[in-house]
Amino acid sequence: MEEGSLVQYAPIALMFLVAAGFVGVTMLATHLLGPKRKTNVKLESFECGIEAKGNARIPFNIKYFLVAILFVLFDIEVIFMYPWAVNFKELGTEGFVEMLLFIAALLIGFFYIRKKGALTWED
């Protein structure tokens, strides 16, 4: 990679800097600007009037995982569309048919998921 081509990534670097800087500045500012009045009652964990017991690490429903993994699969499908969309004109009808075949296979999966009711939330 040449030195000059690095300049085109300057906006991305700037975005990362702003994102990290925003987090840092807001955390520092709330520490410095906010008043500190610590009493025993205020430092108690706030749990809507009920005292907290146990910890947050409890096994939870596998449905969340099911939704997440289906999201990842369709996410990958969309990723394949980027290089296709950029070359849409050059690839022409042939490319369109190729993409249709790709989508068709995934659409079968989508209908399978709907048919099985994997995304319905019944308990």
Binding site: I76, L101, F102, I103, A105, G109, F110, I113
Partner: peptide, 10 residues
């Protein structure tokens, strides 16, 4: 790859 994704879904 589409078949692979389909298999993963099923």
């Amino acid at each position: 790859a589409s078949v692979l994704l389909l298999a993963a879904m099923v």
